[in-house]
Simulated assay, not measured.
Amino acid sequence: MCHGLGPLVIFDGRLNSTKYIDILETYLPAALQKFSPVQSGQILYQQDNARPHVSAVTQEYFKKKRVERIIWPASSPDINIIQNIWSITDNKLLKFTIDNIDDLKDALKTVWSDISNDTIRKRFESLPGRLRQEKVSFDLIK
């Protein structure tokens, strides 16, 4: 089941594991509350292989919080739903006049909030077919 986009979190600076976990602690609980108790047992967290995402301390955090993750191969095809959303976002940003970082942040917030749940649902529902087409199988980490 798809429940739309979570909040757009704009982070200024270099991201490390500690900061990544702080972001998760702040925003993940609200995102998980969108799911019913039955659905919550079926949630799979997806992220790429950026160092803060795969560090030992982050892996321990997920284990402690009992968050199941999808193993995402480093050289996997670009089938991550968020990549599709970033492409949509990029195209919509072309309609804005952006002269500085604050303009960019404001435009991003506007574009992000305008992406419909239907758009997300369609990307979500297309994922199994895209996985089959790419002949990719992903394992779970518990």
Rank of each mutant, 00 (worst) to 15 (best):
Leu104Phe: 06
Asp102Ile: 08
Ala30Phe: 09
Pro52Gly: 07
Pro73Leu: 13
Glu68Phe: 12
Ile43Thr: 05
Ser76Val: 09
Gln83Thr: 15
Asn100Glu: 04
Leu32Trp: 00
Gly13Tyr: 02
Leu15Thr: 14
Ile85Met: 11
Gln47Met: 09
Val111His: 05
Arg14His: 09
Leu104Glu: 01
Gln46Met: 14
Leu94Met: 04
Asp103Leu: 05
Leu44Ser: 02
Pro29Asn: 07
Asp106Met: 12
Asp48Lys: 10
Asn16Tyr: 01
Val57Arg: 10
Leu32His: 02
Asp78Gln: 15
Glu25Phe: 01
Lys95Ala: 15
Ile98Thr: 08
Glu25Gly: 05
Asp90Ile: 11
Arg66Leu: 13
Arg66Met: 14
Ile81Asp: 06
Ile85Gly: 02
Leu15Trp: 03
Trp86Gln: 06
Ser36Cys: 01
Leu28Val: 01
Ser17Pro: 00
Arg69Pro: 00
Leu15Val: 10
Thr110Gly: 00
Glu60Asn: 13
Gln46Leu: 14
Asp78Arg: 14
Leu94Ser: 11
Lys109Ile: 08
Asp12Cys: 10
Leu108Ile: 08
Pro29Glu: 08
Asp48Pro: 03
Asp103Ala: 05
Gln59Arg: 15
Asp48His: 07
Ile81Ser: 11
Asp90Asn: 14
Asn80Val: 07
Trp112Ala: 06
Lys92Cys: 07
Thr58Phe: 01
Lys95Phe: 11
Pro29Gln: 10
